[in-house]
Amino acid sequence: MTQRQALSQSTGGTARGPALALDAGLLCILLVATPMTGSLTLLGETLRSALLFLRELSDWMTKKKLLAGSLAHYEFGVEKLAQAWTLAIALAMIIAGLWIAGLALDLIVTGESQTTSGGLALAAVTLALVTLRSGLQMLPFAQPKPRAFRFASLLVMQSMITLAALADDPSIALLADSFGAAFVALLMTAAGARLFSTAAVDLVDHPLNRKSEAYIAELLLEAGVEEEELLDLRTRRSGRDIFVELTINPSRAGSFEEARQRMGQLRRALAEQRDDLDVAIRLRAPGADSG
């Protein structure tokens, strides 16, 4: 499989385009409806949906651009670019989460809501569309955990906003809307913090953890590299890519060509095990290191 084919598969081929278009349409409905409803829960969900959509869109566009070759000048891949974008989205999520939490607190303290029963009903219907879309995405069962979690969280918000819309007492409606908003604020802040920590670690050339490095050492052993041959192992993460630099003592090989061929086999053996490895091999005689 060529790099281009692999990339095309990872972008989901052409299938991701319509799904993104559908999400964009739903986001437009949310953006139009939210100011009309005055519901804080819906405002929070609109912000969350917008940020998640931006993340999906940037991921898709980066891969499209990579496929078209316009990002080829990034010689070490574009994963850091994706991580920087994730970092920005994560920060926006944290800030938006804190802002919504502040508004929810203000609403509870002052008790001054700008929404009406009609507005809450509209909010419930709009949110139902988002929940329905998320539910349909769940239809091929055994979906990844994040998708199931999003659906479950939307159900909680849907119950809150429906309660607010159906409540006769305005104070109950206000409380239900505030709790829904506080819930979405909590989700956004937590998701933002989690994304932030992952992206920040990847951006700073963090090495792999001991377990992963031990796994690579094991792979090397399986590929026939003895422990005393491995002079140095440097690793770093860059999004989904793992960069590994091996310094190997080639004393077992007689000629350079023999050593080169052996390193070629080693590289292929590692690539067969993990396709996200970018392996660079240095050959050095012990004690003749540079610097």
Partner: peptide
């Protein structure tokens, strides 16, 4: 012109040091 690994190692170490 690097037939043996020793030649190769000597040459690339010199290149690395020069670039550094």
């Amino acid at each position: 012109g690097c037939a043996s690994v020793t030649d190769y190692c000597r040459r690339v170490t010199a290149v690395e040091n020069h670039l550094k």
